[in-house]
Design a protein around this nucleic acid. Sequence first.
DNA 1: CTGAAAGCGCTTACAG
DNA 2: CTGAAAGCGCTTACAG
Lengths: 339, 339
Amino acid sequence: VQRPTIADIARLAGVSKGAVSYALNGQPGVSAATRERIQEIAQAIGWNANSAARALSGSLAGAVGMVLARPARTLGVESFFMQFISGIEAELAPGRVALVVQVVEDHEAEIATYRRWWGERRIDGVIVADVRTHDTRIPLLEELGLPAVLTGGATSHHGSIARVWVDNAAPVRVALRHLHGLGHRRFGRVAGLPELEHTAMRGEAFDEWLGEHDLTGLTRYTDYSPEEGAAATRALLAEDVAPTALLYDNDVMAVAGMTACHEDGLRVPGDVSIVAWDDSVLCRIVHPGLTAMRRDIAAYGAVVARTLLDVVDGHRADARQAATPQLVVRASTAPPATT
Amino acid sequence: VQRPTIADIARLAGVSKGAVSYALNGQPGVSAATRERIQEIAQAIGWNANSAARALSGSLAGAVGMVLARPARTLGVESFFMQFISGIEAELAPGRVALVVQVVEDHEAEIATYRRWWGERRIDGVIVADVRTHDTRIPLLEELGLPAVLTGGATSHHGSIARVWVDNAAPVRVALRHLHGLGHRRFGRVAGLPELEHTAMRGEAFDEWLGEHDLTGLTRYTDYSPEEGAAATRALLAEDVAPTALLYDNDVMAVAGMTACHEDGLRVPGDVSIVAWDDSVLCRIVHPGLTAMRRDIAAYGAVVARTLLDVVDGHRADARQAATPQLVVRASTAPPATT
DNA sequence: CTGAAAGCGCTTACAG
DNA sequence: CTGAAAGCGCTTACAG
């Protein structure tokens, strides 16, 4: 089958290719009647702009990219990314912008991917996941001038690149207040990778709130895997003054932690209360259901995509804030056993 | 920053642009010494082929696409797709082929996406997920002549399009033999969407094996959501002759079913044994751990990507078979309670 | 083995 | 308001 081009449309409409281009792109330069006739013909013959030709003639590539740098071991464990992608696409779809996804093993490969994409002119901008405290991706993106939006970070200034940030501190305080209200006084935190900005943000809020209330809090860092989540849980519960309530940085570790408790003969929430970040189907379907921080991940993705499109269009887009996660109380939190 | 082009390389090497192109693409027409010099220069100045220019000049787009047609509600629930994508990318990466992922709400939007991609010449081929019994995507792809590979289907002939299939029947028999060996005689199946070929394949194997052994089996179809998984579980267990062992078509429903049992005061595996399809982190981290069908999903994705690249290159690629899922026995299956 | 040139399908100043 | 033409950065016959 032969793909129709603007030359076909021009012939059918009896105008020049230039006129067709103006008509189809909403540019001035053609009469309303001509424009309409051209649009009808394009529709009728099922024309779609050849994305390569459009990209080559100085316009945009019509695609944005996202690199997921995760070791294969922890990939696909959390449902976060599928929902995030789904929200991104919802925002990209009306503008017919495609999403190129690249899964790589490490940070170095991610950097190489940005360089390559830039050289290939394959994408118009990138969504940067999991911003780190000292993130080498940021100077690279600035050097290349590749439009980008940073996600998963704090408000802090990172040069000139736009960002969408989430308040990770307030939910920590809400969770601690909830647990404190139930009577808990000793808290543990099973945290994710310490170099990620949002991990730091949560950790600061955790330490600060406990400090203000003269309470103790212990933190263990992990790689988000269930194995490390279970190990951190056991380590925290083996402390001299063991915590009675645990906060987890992802849903998978929270469930793994709960299972570790069950295997060790501890009841949830009888002996240990559990709160998970990023509420998910997983939190809802286990028994007992997990008290968790909920946010609309798809909506978050949509804000991120909108911000990137704005940056690509040359608008200023500084730091935008996505919705703050809300605490959803389920059956995994209860007053501590009286000792 | 200005991106280097082959004109820059040609100038630096003192040859024509054509020679540069031949040298960089491994075509004959340049001496070994010249080729090497050109490659070194390209490397040194960080040249990457402009993907639009390459695509426009009759060559390939250097990208393949995959549409995920799932209602937002069930998206991101299973970890299948992230691992599948990860495996696909591992195979695409060496050839510098990008993956365009499109999440759409329904079948109609998926069809529209294929038409648009084809018109835009944006991608060189597509990976088709979840083949249906009468799949309208297949005649469309044949009509467009868009290279494709079908996945998640049976061996059955579907016109001229390549496919990678998985034996879904053998694992069902293995699971039933395992449960039968434990003493189970009444079986239930919480199935996925009945229109999917692999659902049908599993269902036939289920009914056939039970028929051969003069045993009874009941099936409920669902949309893979935990809600329908729990409801189907309760419906099956409420039958006059309730099953003592249940097979689930995904991990999420298996966990939701187990939780439904717990909530209703039934023990797993004491009262009900559970087997899940597509072993996952989820199956490992719940308590008790779920007996499940394991396959290397990333390897499956790699075979699919390899097949698509072969088709794009013009090779024949008929029906290839991916590894057959293996039963992993954990704590959710045991002899039935004596009644 | 190498160079000059056409062409892919668009967009966009530039004349009329 | 419209047409003719150049150009984006490659690939690929076609001459030499």
